[in-house]
Nucleic acid binder design. Structure first.
Length: 896
RNA sequence: GGGCGGUUAGCUCAGUUGGUUAGAGCGCAGCCUUGACAUGGCUGAGGUCACAGGUUCGAGUCCUGUACCGCCCACCA
């Protein structure tokens, strides 16, 4: 391979990113067992299972965030030498996919019912062929380094088998059961949905008070019930009052007649009734209200269903109402009651009806025979895992939400009356016996009465999408087959996902993983927040504030997008994505590119040999080498610490500072002078250059997990270190290596002086370009390093001549500058009164600040409770500070 | 009705287990057409850390309460 050794003169991600992507594509570095892998056999594997995006969806900025974070984790682990598996896939998203496809076929003049199940599913398969791969292709543009060879689909063969096996196992364990129960029915989607898929919003409506006449009594004689749903009166089978309610005590046991249906129903005493609400008397409609259902079961009431699947009044209801849509029926019934004189009052009332998350229809509680998963025992095990710390949630405060939800969990309705999805593997014989089979061909006969397989009828319902998603951490690894992947990569280390699907998905994976695999599917659950617009609003198509990641990539590059997203992220917290943030990230990439361009172009002509090891380059570069090594080691340490605690944005910020403030603004500026100075020994200039290369190399490694393209692109142009492979993606993660010490601190001292000189010049409005004489008093060791850094100090502070001695020359005029242990005098050519005043003011400000700090520190040290109780290191620190301040003040005063 | 989170510079946000002088980006002011970069450089201004108590030698950080903002959960007809 002929690597380009020069970087383009400007940073153009649209050119760099495809080139780098092509190099990655030609390699198999994403595969933990691939030939490009740097995995060390003795390190434990690192596994992340990608949350599968909906197969029909397009890339949005939320995807961009999770892809970035997971890719970051995977790349870092890979560079650390761990066998790293990031397993990608897509979700069939049954209800969402049907929703989308239904719209498409509607435009073709078809519908689900016009096509029928078989043709509809064929159409769906075609649709899947078109969309599968699109979203994952978009993930690749973001730089995702998943193991594409292992890409999975929740509707593929292996998943299907996993679903059947999981269900059969749960059934065997008594954790899956079929029963008639009230479910949330969506009249729009024509399916039941789980509690989680409903959204409750407060809405203004009415509460109606209706009189039900007593059986055999006068119409004016009766009991008044309060209801928000008068139309359900057709299904009433009782009226309930509180047993202790004196108003109604004598009515309990009597019967009232339900209007229109002319059904006499009992008045019951049941303490679920709140005496203070409404009239204290409740109509009971067991087939259409969860509370009423409970009452019905307690009192053995019949439960007639009066609304059909479209939420129309059933056909066998009384005349005018039969077939009416539910809200039309409500009006009609209220009017009819009024006409009969049974409507007592109408009052405004706010209620919170549950609406379908997908279609926004008001959900209708409906009595239906469905499959349920018994969640209590599963939830207890999931709770045990987080309580013992076997699985950790980041951020930790989500554990409370987790605890609450799993403690209060209700059984999970997994039946969906949809077509696209995994069909429930349950068969029924003519006698109604249930046979559950994991076999793809179905059971060989009824498990109870032995009825022939041909006579069995399979359940027509399919599973809730989240059932197959709940198996994802192990179905992707081949379960139920005991594959080597399953043994090696289960459980995964991190589940990274949004906190909005903590219950939907994470809890289900935990429950099913523990039940079916025997241990929790992940060690850490990392939850990210939502990406919002600059005003903090949710992004939505209707608001028109959606940011399209693909056009951002076109515009500023995937690296800048990733950097911006990582910079803004904190565990569990939402972030705002603003143009400023993106611009800043783009500028950072540009800065890095130009720094690299400079370094490569500044190679001294004499440097022709192989790249020396970092240590010998450092040693040859004197103070600069020691300093560079100390700075870089500190950066490595901070980045490692931040990443260990999932502090992604802090890590990004640290790399940003190390690159911009330390490497570009200080290291390069210092090195520039030496490199350009032909009078310096060639060996020294070579060492300085190699040190610069080493620093850049390390920064690229640190940044690579966040911004993989640009770092890979630059790294390719750098001279290789001994033992490096062809890709930065599989190069070793840096380890800190520093001798630190005074040698490194010397540069910081001199840089501090440079800064003070610049500040003094600015505050006295001396011309920026003028060369001014500077005399410096420095201790012997610093004086020596100052001599070696002379050229750099001169250029950076713009001072000439520069004299360095143990003491300042006596009796001269000028501006006194104190920087740490260094004292200096800057001598402007002809200091006028304004300059002198400005200088005096500057020094006075410094004195005031220093004295205030000194006073504070002295007060603290004078307090025996501080010296007695504070740790010795803190006290020693305060003492050191006092000494420094006294010294500084003395030197400032001396020049005053 | 419960629960959780937030409130730090003009704006957007960091701030590890309580420890000396609270940080960054953007914005703002002044200066700089210096051979990597004006998508840049240098210097600077700007904060009673929402409020009120408490614990502590010491609180942005821990505890209690209050106010406002946001989110989640909940069968009151």
């Amino acid at each position: 391979m002929s690597a380009p050794r020069e970087l383009g003169s400007s940073y153009t991600p649209s050119e760099i990113e495809p080139q780098v992507a092509a190099r990655w594509a030609a390699s198999d570095y994403g595969n933990p067992e691939g030939s490009d892998s740097v995995a060390k056999a003795d390190l434990p594997p690192f596994t992340i299972i990608m949350p599968p995006p909906n197969v029909t969806g397009g890339l949005h900025v939320g995807h961009a965030l999770f892809v970035t974070l997971e890719d970051l984790l995977a790349r870092r682990a890979r560079m650390e030498g761990r066998p790293t598996l990031w397993l990608p896939g897509v979700d069939h998203a049954s209800i969402a996919a049907q929703f989308v496809l239904d719209k498409i076929i509607a435009e073709e003049g078809e519908s689900r019912s016009s096509l029928g199940r078989e043709r509809y599913l064929q159409r769906m398969d075609r649709f899947m062929e078109e969309t599968r791969g699109v979203i994952l292709g978009q993930f690749r543009r973001l730089g995702a380094s998943a193991d594409w060879g292992r890409t999975r689909f929740t509707m593929d063969e292996v998943s299907s088998r996993a679903v059947r096996t999981a269900f059969a196992t749960l059934y065997e364990h008594g954790l899956a059961y079929r029963t008639e129960a009230l479910v949330n029915w969506c009249p729009g989607c024509k399916t039941s949905v789980s509690d989680l898929e409903s959204i409750s919003v407060e809405e203004r409506g009415n509460i109606w008070e209706i009189r039900y006449p007593l059986e055999g009594g006068a119409p004016s004689d009766g009991i008044v019930v309060a209801t928000t749903r008068p139309e359900t009166l057709l299904g009433d089978t009782a009226v309930a009052v509180h047993p202790d309610d004196p108003r109604y005590a004598q009515l309990i046991g009597k019967r009232v007649v339900i209007p229109f249906v002319d059904r006499a129903v009992p008045i019951l005493g049941d303490d679920f009734v709140d005496q203070t609400f409404g009239t204290g008397a409740v109509k009971v409609t067991p087939a259409h209200d969860p509370n009423d259902r409970e009452v019905g079961l307690r009192h053995n009431l019949p439960a007639p269903t009066i609304l059909d699947e479209a939420a129309h009044i059933v056909a066998d209801a009384p005349k005018p109402f039969a077939g009416m849509e539910r809200f039309a029926a409500r009006k009609a019934i209220v009017a009819a009651l009024d006409a009969l004189g049974l409507l007592v009052s109408v009052k405004p009332h706010t209620a919170t009806p549950a609406r379908c998350q997908r279609s926004n229809d008001i959900l209708e509680p409906r009595l239906r025979t469905q499959w349920f998963i018994r969640t209590k025992p599963l939830a207890e095990k999931a709770l045990a895992a987080t309580r013992t710390g076997k699985t950790r949630i980041v951020p930790a405060h989500f554990e409370k939400t987790w605890e609450h939800w799993l403690t209060e969990i209700r059984d999970w309705n997994v039946s969906r009356q949809l077509w696209w999805g995994h069909r429930i593997p349950a068969w029924y014989c003519a006698d109604g016996h249930i046979t559950v089979s994991a076999d793809a061909e179905g059971p060989s006969g009824c498990s109870e009465c032995g009825a022939l397989a041909e006579s069995l009828v399979q359940e027509s319902d399919i599973f809730d999408t989240w059932f197959s998603s709940g198996l994802w951490p192990f179905s992707t690894l081949g379960w139920p087959e005991q594959t080597s992947d399953l043994k090696r990569y289960y459980p995964s280390q991190v589940m990274e996902t949004g906190h909005d699907i903590l219950f939907f998905w994470v809890a289900r994976m935990m429950m099913l993983g523990i039940e079916l695999m025997g241990e929790p599917p992940f060690e850490t659950i990392y939850l990210h927040g939502m990406v919002r617009d600059p005003e903090g609003q949710k992004m939505s198509k209707t608001k028109g504030n959606v940011v399209d990641p693909l056009s951002l990539i076109d515009e500023i590059g995937a690296d800048a997008l990733r950097f911006a997203l990582v910079s803004g992220t904190a565990a569990g917290a939402d972030q705002r994505l603003s143009p400023e943030k993106l611009e800043n990230a783009r500028n950072f990439m540009n800065k890095l590119w130009n720094a690299a361009r400079f370094v490569l172009g500044a190679r001294p002509a004499e440097v022709t040999g192989e790249r020396p090891d970092a240590r010998s380059a450092q040693e040859g570069a004197g103070e600069f080498g020691a300093w560079m090594s100390a700075r870089i080691s500190c950066a490595i340490e901070d980045v490692d610490r931040n990443l260990a605690g999932y502090g992604f944005s802090e890590a990004a910020q640290r790399i940003y500072d190390a690159t911009w403030a330390e490497y570009c603004d200080q290291a390069i500026e210092l090195a520039k002078v030496t490199l350009a100075d032909e009078s310096r020994p060639a060996a020294e200039r070579a060492a300085v250059w190699w040190t610069l290369v080493d620093g850049l190399d390390t920064l690229l490694r640190l940044l690579h997990p966040i911004a993989p393209f640009i770092t890979e692109g630059i790294w390719e142009a750098l001279p290789r270190r001994n033992g490096d492979g062809p890709l930065l993606a599989t190069a070793a993660w840096p380890v800190r290596d520093t001798k630190g010490g005074d040698e490194a601190r010397a540069i910081d001292q001199w840089l501090d002086l440079v800064r003070e000189v610049r500040a003094a010049r600015t505050s006295t409005k001396l011309p920026a370009g003028a060369w001014l004489p500077l005399a410096v008093a420095a201790p012997a060791d610093l004086a020596a390093s100052g001599e070696r850094l002379r050229a750099a100090i001169e250029r950076l502070a713009r001072v000439r001549p520069l004299t360095i001695a143990l003491n300042l020359p006596a009796g001269e005029e000028g501006m006194l500058i104190v920087a740490g242990v260094l004292t200096a005098r800057l001598t402007p050519p002809e200091a006028d009164a304004t300059t002198r005043d400005a200088d005096r003011a500057r020094r006075e400000r410094e004195l005031v600040a220093a004295r205030a700090q000194l006073a504070a520190a002295e007060t603290r040290l004078a307090d025996p409770s501080f010296t007695g109780k504070a740790p010795a290191t803190v006290v020693a620190g305060a003492e050191r500070r006092v000494a420094e301040l006294r010294d500084e003040i003395a030197r400032l005063e001396q020049g005053a």
